[in-house]
């Protein structure tokens, strides 16, 4: 009986902790969220010997743990599909989100594994507390002479705090860029054709991420 009581109090305590962590995340401003994730990811990537020696599967794990919770893949897929989204069945929609999510994770992990001695700088940011959709602007300074990579994020505030739903690299928004690819595939072979292309692409990319033994 005593043991049971201890257990319940432990669980209650854990839940309280989680709740607090959750509340803190919801209060976090979008720019500090971006700064925190970027810093965590970059520091872990630089400190991890396996990642530095080219272990892609470790990069994937890092991204899944640190970045995934803050990205709204559902919304990204909806936006990239544009008007075609409503023409898809719920099953197709679900599959589309799943495959697009994988592709984005692979691409992001690929970008991350190229990070060596880059430095991040943030543009001044200040949002009204009432804002629910903001843009956080930053730039990556590379050691190569004069090479600066713009890196901006669009975030929306939902029930679970801020989430990223679009990224701008070198002046091009990811979703806008995928729109053309999506509509080209759909006009060629329909939603199922797009899903098929995405699945094939992911299968190819996943080969890079299976651990080499």
């Amino acid at each position: 009986m005593k043991l049971f009581k201890n257990c319940t109090s432990l669980i209650a305590g854990l839940m309280l902790c989680l709740g607090m962590a959750h509340a803190a995340a919801a209060d976090e401003t979008p720019d500090s969220l971006i700064k925190r994730i970027s810093q965590e990811v970059l520091e872990s990537a630089k400190a991890d010997k396996d990642i530095q020696s080219g272990d892609q599967s470790k990069v994937l794990k890092l991204v899944e743990a640190k970045v995934l919770p803050y990205i709204d893949f559902q919304r990204m897929t909806e936006l990239a599909a544009g008007r075609n989204w409503r023409g898809a069945t719920p099953d197709q929609q679900q599959e589309l989100v799943k495959q697009f999510k994988s592709l984005l994770i692979f691409t992001y992990s690929g970008a991350l594994s190229q990070v060596k001695d880059q430095r991040l700088e943030y543009k001044p940011f200040r949002a009204d507390p009432a804002d629910t959709d903001v843009e956080v602007r930053s730039q990556v300074i590379t050691p190569r002479a004069g090479q600066v990579i713009e890196l901006n994020y669009r975030l929306a505030k939902g029930a679970n705090g801020w989430k990223i739903y679009d990224i701008n690299v070198l002046g091009a928004w990811l979703i806008e860029t995928y729109k053309g690819n999506f509509s080209a595939e759909i006009s060629k072979s329909g939603i199922d054709g797009l899903i098929k292309t995405l699945t094939a692409k992911n299968a190819k990319l996943s080969l890079n991420y299976t651990k080499k033994t």
Binding site: L170, G171, T177, N181, L194, K201
Partner: peptide, 15 residues
Amino acid sequence: ALDEYIFVRDAYLQR
């Protein structure tokens, strides 16, 4: 990219 040509074109024009 799914279709690299379109991907590069659309990104470039936005840029």
